[in-house]
Design a protein around this nucleic acid. Structure first.
Length: 567
RNA sequence: UGGGGUGUAGCCAAGUGGCUAAGGCACCUGCCUUUGGAGCAGGCAUUCGCAGGUUCAAGUCCUGCCACCCCAGCCA
């Protein structure tokens, strides 16, 4: 091996984890002079936040070390895989902000090489065709504590194996009738080494190779070799493959592969109040317990996109949670914090009310109107300002008025004065009710001196609430989301329940009659905004010109709710 | 009961024998505020799963123990 020290490639970064330590060492020692990683999804479902961790790790390393990251579809099981998933995966990786350039690969492109390598193994006496039934194979594999027993077909001649494997390939056998196995050690304490199956018969059409094959290589016979073919230097996967590493290394050792990749394992991401297994997510979709893979309550990348999570926030989250080998469950609040942090810096502010309560400013002249300058984002002076129009009749949120307020309630109440954001101070003078005693309207007076939101006498007004002008407000549907599960760990089984039974019946609240500042009507679909005091929102893809729909991405931190919960 | 892993705060997570155990989330004070948002200041592990041992010095090394996770698909 030529040994060139490329420690110059080691990035100056605060990101630190055991994988980067290994890479740094490999660069210093001259083991590698260029880093090549890969993200290897199986196209059998949509990507979720757990995949985002792997994507950020693999593509992030490639970026930082001036290397490349391949996007490789692990498409060895045509029964579960579909083109729809391939398309969604590419869209999601791209949306997260990563670029695989020309390096888009498919394990299925290597089927011919893999097939040749299988024959190579047979010729070396290191693989054989087994005629046992699945049941027999299972029984003879032994258990965790007992060794397996050799297949009666284990010592077939190389010629017979070659012929049988050829006939398998030619479609002469039914599924489950025969398999090709590596001949390793049926007594190995590592079950993966007990003559693992490397080829099975599947009379299924493949999304990419069509009907060309009826035998398909297993994951273990595919992954490492694909890594070798692509000259991957660091093949990073999750912990459950740790037991497979000896097998990975065995194939690399024994086969005439063009490179010697190495596998490293890290702990997959778990998040509180959500499930991450593709099987479970698929069930939620298939059983229509959610509205598709991109339901904003789903932990899928597409769900988060529709929910309004910015890709930068997801990437930042992946950086913050770190990469280690200990199983862990990250607090959902950590993700939300990253979302708010990003949105606080970037989202323009607008005013909206979710549950409109009419306010009449009794001393405001009938035909007067005021235009106020409202800052788009107090965090970003460059965001500029917009004009908002004030009027005699407004809407405020019903939550922002209480007839009998508790202590420390800073909002509107009879006799209380509040600031209407960007506009005037108002004081509540009357409460109007219907026959049932429901509050239908409140009357206020305004202080003309407080124009713009501050008064010459500098008197303190504790509360500031948002409002919209009744005359020009636009009506919209607003979707509020809560956790999909009520249980921190929906995967728990100790109560004898399934994850479905932990679903939160109130995970979606649809508000039909929200009133919005008119400017919101023309907001682009992918532009995140803040509704002042209510949270961050994004226009839903089903939103129409005359049927606006906004999804709440995440609420603002609510210290008032916290105070109330204490009492 | 075989093999492979992992244990640092409520949750992530640095730490590679040597100054007072990083940082973030959450939480708690106080300040500030035209969003009860944001921001600012401070607090929050006498101790690193437990017990021994080595050393002038141990979260880091050694021994033993405990707990949890993964593996018996012709899934990946």
């Amino acid at each position: 091996m030529t040994s060139e020290n490329r420690s110059d490639l080691i990035p100056d970064t605060e990101k630190t984890n055991f994988i980067r330590d290994i890479i740094n060492e490999d660069l210093r020692s001259g083991k590698y002079t260029k880093i090549i990683t890969r993200f290897p999804p199986e196209p059998n479902g949509y990507l979720h936040i757990g995949h985002a961790k792997s994507i950020c790790l693999n593509f992030g390393i490639a970026e930082d070390y001036k290397g490349v990251c391949h996007l490789r579809f692990d498409d060895t099981n045509p029964i579960k895989e579909e083109q729809e998933y391939i398309d969604s995966i590419k869209e999601d990786v791209r949306w997260l902000g990563f670029d695989w350039g020309e390096h888009e690969y498919y394990a299925s492109e290597y089927f011919h090489t893999l097939h040749e390598w299988a024959i190579f193994l047979i010729k070396k006496g290191l693989a054989y065709v087994d005629d046992q039934t699945p049941e027999e194979i299972r029984i003879n594999r032994g258990t965790l504590t007992e060794p397996g027993v050799n297949s009666p077909y284990r010592e077939r001649s190389i010629e017979e194996n070659l012929e049988l494997f050829e006939r398998m390939k030619n479609g002469e056998f039914a599924e489950e009738e025969r398999v090709l196995r590596a001949k390793i050690d049926m007594a190995s304490p590592n079950i993966n080494m007990r003559d693992p199956i490397i080829y099975r018969i599947l009379h299924a059409e493949h999304p990419r190779t069509g009907k060309e094959w009826c035998i398909y290589p297993m994951y273990d016979f595919t992954h490492g070799q694909s890594d070798a073919i692509e000259h991957i230097t660091h093949s990073i996967c999750t912990l459950e493959f740790e037991n497979h590493r000896p097998l990975y290394d065995w194939f690399i050792e024994v086969l005439p592969v063009p490179a010697e990749p190495h596998q490293f394992e890290f702990a997959r991401l778990n998040l509180t109040y959500t499930v991450m297994s593709k099987r479970k997510l698929l069930k939620l979709v298939k059983d229509k317990l959610v509205n598709g893979w991109d339901d904003p309550r789903m932990p899928t990348i597409s769900g988060m996109r529709r929910r309004g999570y910015p890709p930068e926030a997801i990437r930042n989250f992946c950086d913050k949670i770190g990469v280690a080998k200990a199983n862990s469950t990250v607090d959902f609040a950590m993700l939300e914090s990253c979302i708010r942090d990003e949105l606080n810096k970037t989202a323009d502010r607008y005013m909206a009310v979710l549950d409109p309560l009419k306010v009449v400013i009794t001393n405001y002249p009938e035909n007067q109107e005021d235009w106020f300058d409202a800052d788009m984002n107090p965090e970003d002076p460059n965001a500029g300002t917009r004009k908002v129009k004030f009027g005699k009749e407004l809407y405020i949120d019903r939550e922002d008025f209480m007839e009998n307020p508790p202590k420390k309630y800073f909002r509107l109440a009879p006799g209380a004065e509040v600031r209407l954001k960007h506009a005037y101070y108002v004081t509540c003078t009357d409460v109007i009710k219907d026959a049932e005693g429901n509050i239908t309207e409140i009357h206020c007076t305004y202080d003309p001196e407080s124009k713009g939101g501050s008064s010459p006498d500098n008197r303190r007004v504790k509360g500031t609430i948002q409002w919209v002008n009744a005359k020009e407000a636009v009506t919209a549907q607003v979707n509020l989301y809560d956790k999909l599960f009520t249980e921190e760990n929906p995967d728990r089984t100790d109560e004898g329940k399934t994850f479905i039974e932990y679903m939160n019946p109130d995970s979606l609240t649809v508000i039909k009659n929200a009133k919005l500042e008119p400017a919101l009507k023309d907001i682009p679909n992918d532009k995140a905004v803040q509704f002042i005091r209510l949270g961050y929102f994004i226009k839903d893809k089903d939103s129409k010109e005359n049927a606006l729909i906004f999804n709440r991405t995440v609420g603002l931190k609510d210290s008032w709710a916290k105070i109330q919960n204490k009492n």
